[in-house]
């Protein structure tokens, strides 16, 4: 069993963190806004962690204090929040595809800047990020509470006034505006909350990876998070979480499936065809399961069957 946790410790942590990233994309989607900006804020959070932990806080020996990690998370949340307002307000005044386009522009600009600036270490990036935990699995102490808090907060959010406003905007933005909902305010709010979450996850990720560079938080990464949400489900908070967990594990499963008993072509396909499978899943799910696999109706259905079984 200890072998198991040693082998898959990092993978489990990545699964939880990717579920969080899926949530960061789910938040704007709650208000009907397609944003691919999460990777940009994620990269920003990572750089804040990397710079603070290697250049500002000097920890000579032993484990890196958790308190410092929390300070980094706070800073990342602040920075991401402010930046999200700057990016969000102009593009969210508009309806439709503009936010998606603005966010693509945003992540590309972040990428160019992190390659060019002195403080981000250029192409090599920043390395030797200190570790608060002795084993990769230790990061669950950070990641799991974060996931639980985020999930509960979003679950709650869906049931209060703000969440209902999100829902109304998603259903019909014009109608929502006519009903007196301040659509721009709510859209910016949803976008900013997602950005803050992505920034915080970036901090944890940078410590897990030991290093941070401009290859983190690309357009492709944004597409991957989007896949988590769409396949898991974009109408309930459970969906992105399941999507993030399962699709992060999927490559490893495919890889271990590719044993010696399978024909070579299939083996090759399982090895290098993961992205093809991802793409196919995206296309199929948008067509056949536009709300993703886990839908509110399905959750209600499960609850009902469980209730009737209990009786």
């Amino acid at each position: 069993m200890s072998d198991f946790f040693n082998t898959y410790g990092s993978l489990i942590v990545f699964m939880v963190l990717n579920a969080l990233l899926a949530l960061s994309l789910y938040l704007p989607l709650m208000a009907g806004q397609l944003s691919l900006a999460s990777p940009g804020f994620f990269a920003l959070g990572g750089y804040i962690a990397a710079i603070m932990s290697t250049k500002v806080f000097h920890v000579e020996a032993g484990a890196y204090p958790l308190g410092y990690v929390l300070i980094e998370m706070l800073l990342a949340a602040l920075a991401s929040g402010v930046l999200a307002l700057i990016v969000g307000i102009p593009s969210l005044r508009l309806r439709g595809i503009y936010l998606a386009l603005a966010t693509i522009a945003f992540i590309e600009i972040v990428r160019v800047l992190s390659l060019t600036l002195e403080i981000t270490g250029g192409a090599v990036g920043i390395f030797g990020i200190p570790q608060p935990f002795g084993t990769p699995l230790g990061y669950l102490w950070l990641a799991l509470p974060l996931l639980i808090v985020a999930a509960l907060a979003i679950w709650r959010l869906e049931r209060v006034r703000v969440g209902r406003a999100f829902n109304a905007i998603r259903a019909d933005e014009l109608a929502a505006g006519a009903m007196g909902i301040n659509t721009t305010y709510h859209k910016v709010l949803a976008f900013t909350l997602g950005a803050i979450l992505a920034g915080i996850v970036g901090v944890v990720y940078a410590h897990v990876l030991n290093t941070w560079n401009a290859r983190q938080g690309t357009f492709e990464a944004g597409v991957a998070y989007l896949t988590y949400v769409l396949i898991g489900g974009s109408r309930t908070v459970v969906g992105p979480i399941v999507g993030g967990l399962a699709l992060t594990a999927l490559p490893e499963v495919l890889r271990s499936l590719g044993g010696e008993s399978l024909p070579t072509w299939l083996n090759n396909f399982l090895n290098s065809g993961q992205s093809i499978i991802y793409g196919t899943l995206i296309v199929l799910s948008t067509t056949f399961f536009p709300q993703g696999l886990i839908t509110p109706r399905l959750l209600r259905f499960w609850r009902r069957t469980r209730a009737s079984n209990d009786q």
């Binding site: 271990s256 044993g259 696999l293």
Partner: peptide
């Protein structure tokens, strides 16, 4: 839908139980 979800869950479990590889 339920079959696909089951597959996702199985893949999760398989990821966890994967140490039986023959290599």
């Amino acid at each position: 839908q339920q079959v696909l979800i089951a597959l996702l869950v199985v893949s999760l479990l398989a990821a966890c139980g994967g140490d039986a590889t023959p290599t």
